[in-house]
């Protein structure tokens, strides 16, 4: 019997400070056993438990993309015991990864559709995974227009800045980068909150347009009315939820919203599904 609690051993291959306040770092892991990488085959939108022996585990969205081989990446906000410990680890350290866990963005349903990605703050990790996946030459033709609205407090708080600005230059993706505010006279992108930028720049919905929304609760709260104004129906708004988790495989019982378990039945739900469950997230 496979033991779903046993993590794959990984080595920290690289650590990158991701934001100017140093509260986020991006960790690149390489599997100690190459065959484990195959077993860890994942889809954009899934998460994994980062597992530090003697410290604990944390559920984190996978920031690397299925089309990137040889490593997996996670961008982690320092907030609790495990994330603080992880932030103090070094390149070369050995730890574990358990997964991939949960469901993913509905890639089959999104084929031949317009996809609008809306993210705020550090909830951009699985969205990065998704964008890299869609932009991959093998996949780009499977999707119609791609729009991205991504905002952070300040330019230095945007994740994956270099990639964002590279995507900005491409003509097969429409980037709408925004910050709450900046005094940088060189800033040439949007200023303002995500919901406003969505309302002014996101495409009006037809039945072939879907929005994927990830962000802090306040952003989600005000983005929903903006999307409604643009004609998005509840089933066209796809969200990824977070709840406290331990097992990640639907057994330990804490992450439920109604009868759905965020770890196993989610984390990806449509707004239509979420509206049918108690809002306990």
């Amino acid at each position: 019997m496979e033991n779903p609690y046993v993590p794959y051993p990984v080595r920290i291959d690289d650590i990158e400070v991701a934001t100017e306040d140093k509260s986020l770092k991006t960790f690149t892991f390489v599997f100690q056993n190459p065959e484990d990488e195959e077993k860890f085959a994942y889809k954009a939108g899934q998460f994994a438990e980062l597992s530090i022996p003697g410290v604990g585990e944390i559920p984190i969205g996978i920031a690397s993309s299925p089309v990137e081989k040889g490593f997996v990446k996670f961008t982690v906000f320092r907030t609790g015991v495990v994330t603080s410990h992880l932030h103090n680890m070094k390149k070369g350290d050995i730890m574990g990864i358990r997964g991939p866990l949960g469901n993913w963005y509905p890639w089959e349903k999104l084929e031949n559709k317009n996809v609008v990605i809306i993210g705020g703050g550090f909830a951009f990790t699985t969205l990065r995974s998704s964008i890299v996946y869609m932009l991959d030459p093998a996949n780009r033709s499977r999707f119609k227009n791609i729009d991205v609205v991504y905002g952070a407090r300040s330019p230095g708080m945007l994740l994956y800045r270099e990639e964002l600005f590279d995507w900005e230059k491409r003509d097969d993706i429409n980037m709408h980068i925004t910050v709450d505010g900046t005094d940088d006279p060189e800033w040439k992108y949007h200023k303002g909150f995500v919901p406003q930028v969505v309302e002014n720049n996101a495409p009006v919905a037809d039945e072939d347009t879907y929005a994927i929304v990830c962000g802090p609760p306040i952003m989600i709260k005000f983005t929903q009315p903006a999307l409604t104004k643009l004609g998005y129906q509840e089933h066209q708004i796809i969200m990824s939820l977070e709840n406290r988790m331990k097992c990640g495989i639907g057994m330990c019982g804490r992450c439920n919203i109604g009868k759905e378990l965020v770890c196993k039945d989610g984390p990806v739900f449509t707004l239509e599904q979420i509206n049918q469950t108690p809002k306990e997230y």
């Binding site: 609690y5 022996p53 003697g54 331990k246 057994m251 330990c252 019982g253 804490r254 992450c255």
Partner: peptide, 29 residues
């Protein structure tokens, strides 16, 4: 059946174990 998972170390040994947990506890979620 709800449970919690916790790590402990003693000297150079780490142990991961599970304990019964309760939805009555605020820490649960």
């Amino acid at each position: 059946w709800c449970f919690d998972i916790q790590d402990e170390t003693k000297h150079k040994t780490a142990v991961r174990f599970r304990n019964w947990d309760s939805c009555m506890s605020p820490l649960f979620t």
